[in-house]
Nucleic acid binder design. Structure first.
Lengths: 210, 210
DNA sequence: CCCGGTAGGTGTACGCCGTACACCTGTGCT
DNA sequence: AGCACAGGTGTACGGCGTACACCTACCGGG
């Protein structure tokens, strides 16, 4: 049932996931669902935990490669399940969710050797970036280069008197029309920048305490 | 009308902003609103532009101080208007929105002297982080230290056999109960880390081209 | 002075949503 | 044989966005 709900939300977004449609898909009457979940929010919680289950978090390597793999896997997961973007950290965490957070903290505390506060900073920084990237990918209306260019051209064209008022926006339109916009590449640039910054602070701290 | 809608959404969230309630608040019948906006989405667009209007973006100083002030102002805005978090970059951008993006690109291109691709990378990195932080602040259920601790304690208590399965989560519960969780402080740590990383890449590039 | 257009408020109605509540049925344990 | 209970059903309520037809008050040009 939860799997079906995830599939429904994957194609069509959260809006097209209603208890009625889900029941239909399962060949059952809407109210039958309430024998398995208390309400729709509980269903969403269960769906989120499925997303967490899909995430991979390799141990064994350096903290940096582990955190990098985690971030990439998470972005991919949220890219597959855009509906989950605003829901990952709300309400009751499921078992996979708990496991994931615990493993991440363990990696930062033990493998990277960060003190508690620093680990929290690093965690918060990385997750904010990951969720923010997923959110942008979900909401930004530039998917196809041509579309992006059209959009920005239209903006300029709508008010001819303002055509040159936003030269930098125009530049974006032109450039993206030429070469496209790759969310994955964009994400990895920022990810590596962030990992660098964390690594630097880690070294600074361990140098000052030795 | 749009101001009233913003006020309604500020207290009570997006869910409690319905055309009917808004009409009520304005002493008018629901359908009257449709003489001023085509549909609810258009209303949301207008509301988002109000948020952009509130943002401050000081010129004059260094690119770094400008971008830092922008980021902080943006986080504050999204903290005041949590409902806007998922809506800032969707659909038709309003005039304040266009102005803001153009000014930001101008700062990165001209003041910071970044080439186009690099400016886009930096912009994407910063905005993802800002939106992600706002999203976490909105959705994470740890607002009051006591509540956070309770939550995590409950998680451990629910399955006594698993009580020690998540030692790092337990640590988080204990630490935050002691000292609280400050979203602003957390945000600024990451913000400065990101600004450092961008600055480093900027210097590297300009060194290699001279 | 009238008169038509228009800006803006009204009332009714439709189809969707989540879900409360009472009811029914088949299965398995004692 | 009896019964509890898991799980499917039907009806109904209140809320939502909004299509559509209607009404009213104003305002500029003949």
């Amino acid at each position: 049932m939860v799997r079906t709900a995830v599939a429904l939300a994957d194609r069509g977004g959260l809006d097209s996931l209603s208890m009625r449609k889900l029941a239909d898909k399962l060949g059952v009457v809407p109210m039958a669902l309430y024998k398995h979940v208390a309400n729709k929010d509980e269903l969403l919680d269960a769906m989120v935990d499925i997303v967490f289950e899909e995430l991979e978090f390799p141990g064994g390597g350096s903290w940096r490669s582990a955190m990098r793999a985690r971030a990439i896997s998470m972005r991919e997961g949220l890219s597959r399940h855009p509906w989950a973007v605003g829901l990952m950290e709300v309400r009751a965490p499921g078992p996979a969710n708990l496991r994931h957070h615990n493993a991440t903290m363990a990696c930062l505390r033990k493998d990277a050797g960060l003190p508690f506060r620093m680990a929290v900073h690093a965690y918060s920084l990385m997750d904010s970036y990951i969720y923010g990237s997923a959110l942008q990918e979900k909401t930004l209306p530039i998917d196809i280069p041509a579309e992006a260019e059209t959009r920005l051209r239209v903006i300029a064209a709508e008010q001819p008197s303002h055509a040159n008022e936003y030269p930098y926006l125009a530049e974006i339109g032109v450039e993206f029309a030429k070469s496209g916009y790759d969310y994955r590449e964009e994400f990895e640039f920022g990810l590596d920048a962030i990992l660098d910054a964390i690594e630097r602070r880690r070294k600074l701290r361990s140098a000052s305490t030795t």
